[in-house]
Amino acid sequence: MAETAPLISSQRFLDPAKVADKAARFRVFIVRVAELELRGARYRVLVDGHHNLAAARAAGIEPTWRGPPAKWERIRRATAPAEFERFLINNLTDSDWYFVETGEIVDELLPFEA
């Protein structure tokens, strides 16, 4: 069995009230990821569903993993691979890229210094 690529994100902010509400009410937690290569390594990028993932973990339920939204895929396909890679590395949400399981920064994905 092939090893799963590590899950990474650039969004750390989670609204605790939203997570608690979803954990109490939901039974299905959709989390959207895209598996791709960045700077020569494979990663699963958490594209959408940060709150759903946290709520699923709080509820003790395995999330439902899905691929990225159609719009995200259209943009990826319409963009040259090197340009898309630069876009992902340099356009962060609220954090440098980090491993979701440990919270550690992915040093290999830190933006290059100018």
Rank of each mutant, 00 (worst) to 15 (best):
H50P: 02
F99K: 03
A2C: 06
L38P: 06
N91V: 08
D96K: 08
F13C: 00
H51D: 01
F87I: 07
V106H: 06
W72K: 04
V100I: 05
F112N: 15
A78S: 14
D107P: 02
E83R: 13
E113F: 11
E3H: 03
E35C: 05
A114Q: 14
A59W: 00
I89R: 03
W72S: 09
L14S: 06
D94A: 05
T93G: 07
A78N: 09
A24N: 02
R12L: 07
F87Y: 13
A41I: 09
I61R: 10
A82G: 12
R25L: 14
E37S: 13
A58T: 09
R39V: 11
T93H: 13
F26C: 11
W97S: 01
E83S: 11
R76A: 14
G49D: 00
L7N: 00
A70K: 07
R32V: 01
Y43S: 06
P63W: 01
V19Y: 03
L36F: 02
E37A: 08
E83L: 13
F99T: 05
K71H: 11
T4W: 01
E101K: 11
V19C: 10
R74V: 10
E62K: 12
A58Q: 14
A70H: 06
P81A: 07
V28F: 03
A55T: 02
F87A: 12
A24D: 01
P69G: 10
